[in-house]
Amino acid sequence: MIEPQPTRRRPAADVQHAVERMRELARALPARDGIAVFNRVYLTVTEEVVRRSADGLFRDPLASAELSARFAERYLSAVEVAAGGHRPPACWRPLFQLRRHPGVRPLQFALAGINAHIGHDLALSVVDTCTARGCEPAEVEGDFERVGQVLTALEERIREDLMPGPDLLDIADPLTHLLGAWSLERARDAAWAAARVLWRLRDLPEVYGEFIEGVDSSVGMVGRCLLTPLG
């Protein structure tokens, strides 16, 4: 007897479900908590992507919605794993471990979360989406880049909102050097390259797993540096 398969929500509905879960987190967490800081940023980005999708930004709205949903689910899964007392992926551990450290500034929390999510989760989400839809990564590349345009447009606003004061940071402030050391554009380029490699390795489970583990560890080390307490 064939077991009935669970009915899967449409991708757009999955995205909205993820948005609601992020809104619940925003209501539940203290504002200064590092996860709360990243959650606010990610919620803003996801809501903007949903709005742009409704306005016709994407060539394939269903594929883009599925990618957005799978991407969000990896972050929300890390939150649930940590809340259950278990270890999230290495890329997320620095943020969960230092989320309440008084010497870490809000912008550092935001960058560490973005680093973990893009550096590790994005490539896996691209592969998962292509596998589920039976398509090649090249078929979603255009919409991947369109999402990048949305992120780039929001990046400056996010940084300004999380700056420690109304004026530009002094050149001697250590946070200035952290801001200059991490690049959203480079992180997205690396994520796309990783997705292409993973797609080629998908029929080699052992090598595939080793590659993911290496990416996870490397992204985690970068996150640890981004969260260096600055006082």
Rank of each mutant, 00 (worst) to 15 (best):
V81D: 02
V37L: 09
D60G: 01
I2K: 14
V104K: 09
L201Q: 10
F109A: 08
G34D: 02
R70M: 02
V150S: 03
P6R: 00
V150A: 04
E210G: 12
L95T: 07
L124P: 07
P164E: 07
D14Y: 03
C91L: 08
V81T: 15
Y75V: 01
R74L: 00
E145V: 14
N39M: 06
E73P: 01
P61W: 02
E80C: 04
L43P: 07
R186H: 14
V219G: 03
E3Q: 08
Q97P: 00
C135I: 14
E141Q: 12
E156D: 11
G180D: 15
H117E: 03
D167K: 11
L178E: 13
P6Y: 00
G180W: 14
H86T: 04
R93G: 01
D167Y: 09
H86F: 10
R21Q: 13
G119D: 07
R224I: 03
D121G: 07
R196L: 14
R21D: 06
D55C: 03
C225P: 00
N115K: 08
S217E: 15
L57P: 03
L111V: 09
V150R: 01
G148P: 03
G142L: 07
I158S: 00
F38E: 06
E213C: 12
R9I: 03
R196E: 15
P4S: 01
G209I: 05
E47Q: 11
P88K: 04
G214Y: 10
P11H: 06
G113P: 04
S217F: 14
F109W: 08
E73Q: 08
D167Q: 13
Q5I: 05
R23Q: 13
P89R: 10
M1Q: 05
G113F: 05
H117Y: 04
A26T: 15
S68C: 10
G214C: 13
V127Y: 06
S217A: 15
R9N: 11
E210V: 08
P229D: 04
R9D: 12
A90H: 08
